[in-house]
Write a protein that binds this DNA or RNA. Sequence first.
DNA 1: AACACGACCTGGTAGC
DNA 2: TGCTACCAGGTCGTGT
Length: 264
Amino acid sequence: MPELPEVEAVCRKLRRDALGALIVRTRMLRKRDRRLEARTRGRRIVDVRRRAKNVLIHLDGGWAVRAHLRMTGNLYVVEDVRLRRETVRAYFELEGGAGLVFDDPRTLGVLELFREEELTAILDSLGPEPLDGEFTVERFRETAKASRRPAKIFLLDQTKVAGLGNIYAAEALHRARIHPGRAMNRIGEGRLARLHLAIVDVLENAVESACYAYTGPGSYNSEENFPVAVYGRDGQPCPVCDRRVRRIVQGGRSTYYCPGCQRY
DNA sequence: AACACGACCTGGTAGC
DNA sequence: TGCTACCAGGTCGTGT
């Protein structure tokens, strides 16, 4: 489910609710996660950070948990760890009875334990963070020039820009008025700069509404929280020009765009 | 380098 | 009501 803004919201909530907490017990309900049980017990959560769509839970002693929520994952703290949802895949029982829960109905998410040094090596392959200074127009232009891929596909590549997913890639292209099928290296300087700005704007707005509105599973990206212009609005009028939004398939996934606003 | 596909999984919903 | 088919916010690996 989550793209950068939702993952950011998750991280902020975890910092608020779990920072400094001691993990007294860990229960992994899936075999493939069991490796984490022994090594997380008795450790304290010293930091929670985000890199791209990864949630990084730093523990004392130089360990870190990398959580990737993929399509349906969610991480949150419950006051009473004994109150459990069906779809919970893992929980870290915290000192005092609260629980840090990894909820993941579709079980596509990832939980991994690393030494801090290993973690940095893995995260280094990701592209620049769009809301940090490292995502400059120059850098964006350079990678764009080197790629003939359609814009939408390019934006989903986490080594080019970190954190965009299917929704915000579509929204950024709409805001920049660029057709999702346009080859990256054929977009002119001005429009490229516009796209760069659109990515930052869309994500900043979405972070704001995600952090404000995100309260638990299934509750984000509803129309009130983040008014999408095109995503999921096949056949409905574009809020800018009133033409009907279209759905196409790129790389096996839906792309929504407005044929009126977004030109090649 | 790009593309097409399948794999990983479960659940919701539209249509018959 | 009950079945089927298709859809889903992500990523990785394989083959062409």
